[in-house]
Design a protein around this nucleic acid. Structure first.
Length: 646
DNA sequence: AAGGGACCTA
């Protein structure tokens, strides 16, 4: 076969099912392979290069050819992979070396294709040819777009670039990879170097500010953007502002910016909806979603993903199902596993786990996030066994769990009391070096041991952490409280304060419970007083209930009554039931009857209350009263139970 | 001519 004058191998057509006709002859497709993976592309984009039916880049739609400066490296390597010998002579581009301008074009091509391998090779050639200075900016951009951020940074700073585009490319790349801090550093360095940001730079840095929650800096950019009049015709910049405020939790501000924009599109709306959904304002998110549609804009896959989250939070199964139908109708699940995960999560949160499982099984791709959503669904709804089973299936498929998966599976272990399995997970977490890097995971681990009653283990995990947060302590204190180990719980309280952490309402509930169960009336009362006086926490119903229990259990019925009467809330069934239980214990018929009367006002069929009251009468020898169905307003079922008691 | 905006799991 003749070598073409350019040495390029062009695709000309399909000969047979697994043979390609090219300018240089025939290529055979690898056996059993439907597609050729784009090795040069970042896995994040997960792009596939389809050999059939057309020989085009599936994203850029460019026609592709082999052995040119402009060919992505994965394509250059394709002939070899398919058993074709590489013919060194064919690559004539090398015989006519490009100048700096040509190299810049080549680098842009590499950036566009995210072809780091070729870009690096080109960098090498540029250096050898002494063209580095002239190509430096293009190299920085290429490295930034290919995700090689340290290389980009190195070059940028080496030549103290004066090119706003290259600086912006790096800032933007940092922001896109979630490296907000680095993006900010770069942005500030750029300004110190005397370059002024433009609308694109602002858009990029706003994303970074959003990711690190720097609303103050974001607001300064906002002012500057308004000052320069950049917002007028720039939807992207406006969207970035909305997103920045939303990510920082400043939803009112996000909404305000949104409303003042001269134009909006589906992305702008989605930024706002996402903001509401992420801050737990599901109702607002849904309202926006409907308003967007009433203004004639159509949601896309990303909009659906975030509104599904809102549906899950609201437990709005029917709304979620409608959206599911729409998604299916549009065939959006075929190439979007983020959306698939959102759907699984929505059904799981709504408690429809059969449906969640079913959607999950029908997804074309499953990643660790979709698995985790399902596992968490089971863990959340008390189906620990199923959570464990799913977890094992996931590992069996060769997928590695991440921090979120571990957190969910630990929750399942704790609920099941499966301490051995929990320990195994603990070891795995430690092996992966994940301990101490994530408060939520650390806390889940302590909580798992605590729930299993393995308090020494729980304490050990907590002790070995260098940094702890209030939830981690809370998990341990709750464990001690549940075992009635009041002293240990108090010790924890003191230790956490020595670390500069302030206990919260939940911790005091645990603590009061612990005092109550170990008969420490004085301590309990003291903490209840300190709660508001020292810690500025407004006691909630739970705390009052603990106090009723604390006094009642220890025989201070009068004080228990005093607590109920002093509650700033209306009374509820729980406190009366606790009081009645205490009266039963101490044989206080008068207060007991009073508590009983209140309790059955909340629930006439409250069998537990009837039984307690009957039990109380029986305990003090008032058998007639105990049997008196008139006094107790017992139904037949209750009477039968009463006979058993008396 | 190049650099820019929204999604899922604790």
């Amino acid at each position: 076969m003749m070598a073409g004058t350019h040495g390029q191998l062009w695709y000309l057509g399909m000969m047979e099912e697994n043979k390609l006709k090219t300018s240089e002859g025939t290529l055979e497709k690898a056996r059993n392979s439907e597609e050729w993976r784009c090795q040069g592309l970042s896995t994040q984009r997960s792009c596939h290069f389809m050999a059939f039916p057309s020989f085009e880049h599936v994203i850029t739609m460019d026609s592709l050819c082999f052995d040119s400066w402009f060919t992505p490296s994965w394509l250059d390597e394709e002939p070899a992979r398919n058993g074709f010998a590489q013919d060194g002579n064919r690559c004539n581009d090398h015989a006519l070396p490009p100048d700096a301008t040509a190299f810049v074009t080549i680098l842009r091509n590499c950036a566009k294709n995210k072809d780091l391998r070729k870009g690096t090779k080109v960098h090498d050639d540029i250096t050898k040819m002494g063209l580095l200075e002239k190509c430096s900016d293009a190299l920085v951009t290429m490295y930034a777009k290919c995700g090689a951020l340290s290389k980009a940074k190195e070059l940028l700073e080496l030549h103290i670039s004066r090119n706003l585009f290259s600086w912006t490319a790096l800032i933007s790349a940092y922001a896109q990879q979630g490296l907000g801090k680095e993006a900010v550093d770069c942005f500030e360095k750029m300004q110190r170097a005397g370059l002024s940001p433009d609308a694109v730079t602002f858009t990029s840095i706003l994303k970074a500010y959003g990711s690190i929650g720097a609303a103050d800096k974001g607001e300064r950019v906002h002012d500057e953007v308004v000052h320069q009049g950049l917002l007028e015709n720039d939807v992207m910049l406006g969207t970035a502002l909305v997103d920045m405020y939303a990510k920082c939790g400043a939803l009112a501000k996000a909404r305000q910016v949104f409303q003042n924009l001269s134009s909006r599109n589906v992305i702008t709306w989605s930024a706002l909806i996402t903001g509401y959904a992420q801050q737990g304002e599901a109702v607002q998110a849904y309202a926006c979603y409907e308003q967007m549609q009433s203004e004639g804009l159509f949601p896309d896959a990303k909009t659906y993903a975030c509104i599904l989250k809102a549906c899950g939070d609201m437990g709005a199964k029917d709304k979620g199902e409608c959206i599911h139908n729409e998604i299916s109708r549009q065939g959006l699940l075929a190439n979007d596993f983020v959306l698939g995960t959102a759907l699984v999560d929505m059904y799981a949160k709504c408690g429809v786990l059969v449906k969640a499982q079913q959607v999950f099984e029908n997804l074309p791709h499953r990643d660790v996030t979709s698995w985790s959503a399902l596992i968490e669904g089971y863990a959340q709804h008390g189906q620990g066994e199923q959570a464990l089973k799913t977890f094992e299936q996931m590992q069996g498929g060769g997928l590695a769990p991440n921090e979120v998966t571990f957190t969910s599976i630990l929750k399942a272990c704790g609920a099941l009391g499966a301490v051995a399995k929990g320990k195994q997970i603990h070891d795995e977490i430690a092996r992966q070096g994940l301990l101490g890097s994530n408060f939520l995971l650390d806390t889940a681990l302590v909580d798992m041991y605590a729930k299993c009653g393995a308090l020494a283990q729980a304490q050990k995990v907590l002790d070995e952490l260098l940094l702890r947060d209030i939830s981690t302590w809370s998990a341990l204190i709750m464990g001690y409280a549940q075992q009635g180990q009041c002293e240990q719980a108090v010790t924890c309280l003191e230790q956490m304060q020595q670390e500069g952490l302030f206990p919260d309402a939940v911790i005091f509930s645990s603590l009061l419970n612990a005092c109550s169960h170990s008969g420490r009336v004085h301590d309990g009362h003291l903490y209840f007083t300190l709660l508001s006086k020292k810690y500025g926490i407004k006691p909630d119903l739970e705390h009052y209930a603990c106090m009723v229990d604390l006094f009642g259990r220890s025989g201070h019925i009068d004080k228990a009554v005093g607590v109920i009467q002093g509650m700033p809330f209306s009374d509820n069934l729980e406190v009366w039931s606790i009081l009645l239980g205490a009266c039963r214990k101490w044989g206080d018929v008068n207060v007991g009857r009073w508590a009983f009367e209140h309790a059955i006002q909340f629930d006439r069929e409250n069998t537990a209350a009837y039984l307690l009251m009957a039990d109380l009468y029986a305990a003090v020898g008032m058998h007639n009263d105990a049997k008196s169905n008139q006094a107790l307003r017992m139904d037949n079922e209750g009477l039968k139970m009463l006979e058993v008691v008396v």
